[in-house]
Amino acid sequence: MIPTKLCSLLKIKYPIIQGGMAWIADAKLAAAVSNAGGLGLIAAMNSNGEQLRAEIKAIKKLTKKPYGVNIMLMSPYAKEAAQVVIEEKVPVITTGAGNPAIYMKDWIAAGIKVLPVVASTAHARMMAKSGATAVIAEGSEAGGHVGELSTMALLPQVVDCVDIPVVAAGGIADGRQAAATFVMGAQGLQIGTRFLVAKECGIHENYKKRVLMARDIDSIITGKRLGHPVRSIKSPFSRKMFEFEYDNTVSNEELEKKFGGCLRLAAVDGDEENGCFMAGQVAAMVKAEQTAAEIIKDIMDGAEQAIINYKL
């Protein structure tokens, strides 16, 4: 057992947060992670207030343990979502794709623990100053929207610049990687890719197959030209998008349109031609479909073993 400050702050058994992945992180997956002793997250993504409320009501029926909601700040419904989480007394919020500063006061006043995802030290300092409970330092090994800095470079710098706990995200699939982030000062982990193939994860079988079949060299970043790079598993769609990015005859508006709905096509429809199968660089390390409880136990037992076995 590796006890960390994050466990006592969030009232969870294991310092593992499941990533708030759009079209993937629903009440069923989040409840399974929370029931297993981690912190499950529901992705608010582009849901309107009432859709999000329904998902929150669903998780309340599935678990009595702490859970959270990830609010994507670029969503046109971010303001509605920010209010719904207060009304529904959601215990924990994580935020992504922007700066949650304008909502922080209300969330904190409502007793909500707020953990913004940060991609730089300045962002981490700003969030700590705004009253964040902890920050999630997400390196570019992660799947989905990514920053420039890797976890190896970003994590220790964020740990050094704030006095609140730091959660490591990006590039963590097993206990050795978890142990490495603890050694660098992390108080917790956020895991996304590994939970894509959790038995309780309801994404399309084709998505799970893409993750389970991924090789180490199958990871690709697209969308850099548009200013919001996305990491996914190489696929007909991602290869096509990569080519378009370097094609001057394709305008940014056209490129933006081509990206539209690609994650939904992968997660819901399993569209192998047009879907974007977002996953981190560690996808190739994910070898089996397991329950959320088995995944958490494997990572935490592996981290303990890695620390015990460490010899120079």
Binding site: G98, N99, A119, S120, A122, H123, M126, K129, S130, G227
Partner: peptide
């Protein structure tokens, strides 16, 4: 400047000028 540069600048302005940038 991209969005991370802007955040960096805001924090730097706060430090260098000793003002509240909230």
């Amino acid at each position: 400047l991209d969005s991370l540069d802007m955040v960096d600048m805001i924090m730097q302005i706060g430090d260098e000028f000793g003002i509240d940038t909230d």
